[in-house]
Simulated scan of single mutants.
Amino acid sequence: MPALRSLTPPEARVLATLMEKARTVPDSYPLTLNSLLSGCNQKTSRLPIMNLDETAAQEALSGLRQLSLVVESSGGRATRYEHNFQRGVGVPEQSAILLALLMLRGPQTAGELRLNAERWYRFADISSVEAFLDELAERSEEKGGPLVLQLPRAPGAREQRWAHLLCGPVDTTALADAAGAAGDADGSQAELRRRVAALEAELQSLQGVVQALCDQLGVKATDLPGST
């Protein structure tokens, strides 16, 4: 199977949204253009967040139809769209799910992928996720070449993340820097939470000491100067 051309970011978002909704809202699938746009522009479970309009979505759908990755049906009052990813790319169901999640949510660890796939497919364990990722990473050129890449471990991270290659080669340096910045931010927030917790504990301890002194002196804490 020849390699697909690289998808544009809007094409990847449209395709992955169709793949998601086929699993999570089968009663509403295939999708109308309005439903597809709502899914593409969700503010949750999307990275990056996009704001596609009808023109951009139609252009993406046109490009995906040319690649035989999307099928259009005209039954009913509105045109509807469905994906043809597994047959068009030549991958099993589990691999298609992992690729769709990577297109929707950006780079993720095997553990994150397993958790995020719960509504789509229940992987037995992380090892099974890793097995499908390894298969996608080692895909032969005769089958179209690799579809995922394991990224260098980010500073402070315990696990390596995976990224899809459907939109072409990824800038591993930029992704590592972004992950490091996110890790630094998370670390700063964690340190702030620890300091606040320590101050709260110290305040509670001081309040106990004050109350004990007030009990010994036979006064109420609210009677002390400065109390409200």
Rank of each mutant, 00 (worst) to 15 (best):
G63F: 05
N84E: 03
L99M: 10
L102A: 12
R114Q: 13
A96K: 07
R87N: 10
L104M: 04
E130C: 11
V91Q: 13
A110F: 01
R122H: 14
P92A: 06
R114L: 03
Q86E: 11
A78P: 02
R119A: 04
S95D: 08
F123C: 03
E72F: 07
S74F: 15
R114Y: 05
Q66V: 13
D125Y: 00
R122D: 15
V70D: 10
A96R: 06
S127Q: 15
A124F: 04
E72C: 14
L102P: 09
S95V: 01
E93H: 09
T109D: 02
G63P: 07
A110D: 02
E118F: 05
G76Q: 13
R65V: 14
G75Y: 14
L99K: 08
F85Q: 09
M103K: 06
L64K: 02
S73L: 14
S68E: 14
Q66P: 07
Q86D: 10
Q94C: 01
V70Y: 08
F132C: 07
S73K: 14
G76K: 10
R114V: 04
A100F: 10
G75D: 15
G63E: 05
G88E: 03
F123G: 02
L101Q: 11
V129H: 00
F132Q: 10
R122I: 01
L98E: 07
L101W: 12
A110C: 12
G88F: 03
F123Q: 01
G76N: 06
I126L: 06
V70F: 12
Y121D: 01
A96L: 10
Y81V: 06
S128A: 07
V129N: 00
A131C: 02
R119W: 02
R119C: 00
R77G: 14
E118L: 13
W120T: 00
S68I: 03
R114H: 04
G75T: 14
N84H: 11
F123I: 08
A124H: 09
L115M: 04
L101S: 08
E112I: 00
A124I: 13
R119Q: 05
N84W: 04
G106W: 08
M103F: 08
T79F: 06
A100T: 01
R122N: 13
F132L: 03
V70K: 09
Q86P: 00
D134Q: 13
E112F: 02
R119T: 00
W120E: 11
A124M: 08
L113P: 03
R87M: 09
S127N: 13
I97G: 12
P107C: 10
L104P: 05
Q66R: 15
L61V: 10
G90R: 03
S127G: 15
S74V: 15
G106P: 11
L104N: 05
Y81G: 09
R122K: 14
E72R: 12
G76I: 13
Q66I: 11
A78W: 12
W120Y: 13
L136H: 08
F132G: 01
R77C: 11
G63W: 02
A117R: 00
A117C: 08
